[in-house]
């Protein structure tokens, strides 16, 4: 599903690589934690999957496609098959829950009938039934993150990327978020989650890939967050 082969990424005006000869394979339906200290390259890894950034060397395959051969014109189609959630939720403040989720389908030109059908389903899946008409400011952080997950998942992506989705949320609420991610993963969606949250990683017992200074220092199935932190 995601295949990195000897990928190096050096940002402009930076002498240290953000990713340094990284090779990794993520299969379809896997749940992978990406851990490591701040600045170790986790977000960079996710941006490369989305083709928001280009590697300086090495090759990246996503869903069987070589990203270096994917024309700019086709990048939106790649992104339609990848859902994203972030630490800061990124909801539209002037739209309610339903509209925020529907927005993701509207802008890719889905028919209204389809939108009316699937949006309530996915709102229910993330556990927000009855709150479809709330505005983001009327929701707790955890609920806002559920909206973001609903939006990421509403188009049934093959891959879900989550960049510190529990970063702004207290531990108790985080468990609920992780349950939703797990539910999404069980539908067959590959989930890749960057996190600093040791408790979550330890409790989930999923595959853990650890980065340090842009290098992979550990790749462990059913792993834990690690002793050093």
């Amino acid at each position: 599903m995601i295949h990195f082969d000897n990928v190096t990424k050096v940002y402009a005006n930076q002498n240290r690589p953000a990713l340094d000869h990284v090779s990794v394979d993520v299969d379809k339906g896997e749940f992978v934690f990406l851990v490591g200290p701040s600045g170790s390259g986790k977000s960079t890894f996710l941006r490369l999957v989305l083709k928001e950034e280009r590697p300086n060397s090495g090759s990246i395959h996503v869903a069987g496609k070589d990203l270096s051969k994917l024309s700019n014109f086709k990048v939106p189609h790649l992104r339609r098959r990848i859902g994203c959630v972030f630490q800061d939720f990124r909801l539209l403040p002037n739209k309610n829950v339903y509209e925020n989720v529907a927005f993701a389908l509207e802008v890719i030109g889905k028919p209204r009938r389809f939108i009316r059908k699937v949006v309530p389903e996915v709102i229910e899946l993330v556990g927000l039934e009855g709150k479809a008409h709330r505005m983001p400011e009327e929701l707790s952080g955890g609920e806002q993150q559920r909206v973001a997950m609903a939006r990421a998942f509403v188009n049934r992506p093959m891959i879900l990327l989550a960049d510190e989705p529990t970063g702004n949320i207290d531990p108790a609420t985080s468990i609920g978020i992780m349950k939703v991610l797990d539910r999404i993963n069980r539908t067959g969606t590959t989930v890749l989650m960057a996190t600093h949250d040791a408790a979550i990683v330890d409790s989930m017992r999923k595959r853990v890939v650890e980065l340090e200074d842009g290098k992979i220092v550990r790749d462990q199935s059913r792993g834990v967050y690690g002793q050093a932190y």
């Binding site: 992104r79 098959r81 539209l92 927005f103 802008v107 890719i108 939006r151």
Partner: peptide
């Protein structure tokens, strides 16, 4: 920029944006 950022993320085509 919020709207367009999300549009890019969910794969709206350039023309649409």
């Amino acid at each position: 920029r919020r709207e367009t950022g999300i549009m890019r993320l969910v794969g709206a085509s350039n023309i649409y944006i």
